[in-house]
Amino acid sequence: MEWLFAILVGCLYSAGLYLMLQRNMFKLVLGMCLISHGANLLIFTAGGLTRNLPPIFSEVTSVTSQITDPLPQAFVLTAIVISFGVTAFLLVLVHRTHKTLNTDDIDDLIKTDLQ
């Protein structure tokens, strides 16, 4: 099962990087999103994959060995929320830049002066 996830993580990372290397700022944000998905999935996979054993105590599962590892999930949860914050800020920043400079091209940002 892990090999399939490994392929997925690889795809997410390479696609994310490819998008970030483009000239559009919009694509930069998309790339960031993909890479953060990739990172989340990497941590999740590294923590071990188990089916149908959620880390919740109930009447059925009261023995600790029968549930999946909760720690990576806690990490990933934090990561998802933080990456949303970053994405939101980045989006608005790109929007502002576009409004101010009237361009979507990252390479136009080399100079700090307004044209």
Partner: peptide, 12 residues
């Protein structure tokens, strides 16, 4: 991408 996939495999 290949390196990251490999990393995922070895990390798990």
């Amino acid at each position: 991408g290949v390196v990251m996939g490999f990393l995922t495999l070895s990390a798990s």
